[in-house]
Amino acid sequence: MPDFPYINARVRAMRSRLLTAAQLDELLGAPTLPAFLQALASTPYAGDLQEALVRFEGVRAVDEALARNLHRTTRKILGFADGRPRALIEVVLLRWDLVNLRVIVRGKHAGRSGDEVMAALLPAGTLGEAALKEMVTAPDIAGVVGTLEAVGHPFAPVMAEAMAGYAGNQDLLAFELLLDRAYVERGLRQTRGRSGDAAVLREVLQAEIDAANAKTALKLGSAGGLDEEALLRFFIPGGVLLPADLFLALSASSTRASAWRRLRINGFPIRDLPETPIEFERALDLATAQALAGRYSGDPLGLDIVIGYLALKTYEVANLRLVARGAFLGLPREAVRREMVRV
């Protein structure tokens, strides 16, 4: 039964294939998209890029290659883990399942075609391509829930519960919010206990919940016009730094400054409150990325290495997407560099 020392040894070997800062700078220096593609073809993404270029061209091919590479990476990590380590890694990967289920449910709700929905999926979670295809071809959301139950996915019970509500009122937002809550509840349930790995994952999840709640509060604050009850509908319980009352205070412009001070005292990772939600998200994403990537140098015999590696990989993919678009649109190099998350 492979345990974290074995898994981490494999993950460290994979880490060596991540792009170095010099390679990323070389890609950033590509003046055009063809030059970027040429430079990307001399990195570990070459194989995925070649396959993607057969079916797509331009930025779309880059997106496909990066998505395919991320998918292969997560499947590979899952492939050499089982037992408790696998269960913990699956909790980390469930966020992609959540994204994919959201896409499928939205597609069914809006009556979009299977191809259109399939193109918007990123099979990097625990659900494989076959299961996702099965769900996409289901005639309605009830069919999606049926497939999830058949594969024994942890979201199946909550999807069934959400489906019961949706059948009555067709409220997609309520459906999605139930799913979001179920994701964190399940994650926190799985990480109960005193083991070091469970505690690490719990901390990561709680930071994720706090970040999501802070972002939501500022977005809703900008939207305005919602009463407390409506605002609390979007609050995800389970965080440690940002309780519900602080969430409400942060979403109202009159109490935002004092709420921010309390949040800073609680230990929120950003020093100053940026002016716009986009700047706030950029700063928070950078702080989150640095915290997650920093875990790579954490416990060498624990889950930290996997979490750190997955963060490094995810941000590398995001940076490459950004550089590709910069090259495509001819954006100034400094503007692209400013948007990138360097960890």
Binding site: A110, L122, L172, E339
Partner: peptide, 17 residues
């Protein structure tokens, strides 16, 4: 920039409904 950060998938999902 949004596509680069969120991914094409997330953006297309947001546009579905």
């Amino acid at each position: 920039l949004a596509k680069a950060w969120e991914g094409r998938e997330a953006l297309e999902a947001a546009a579905l409904p």
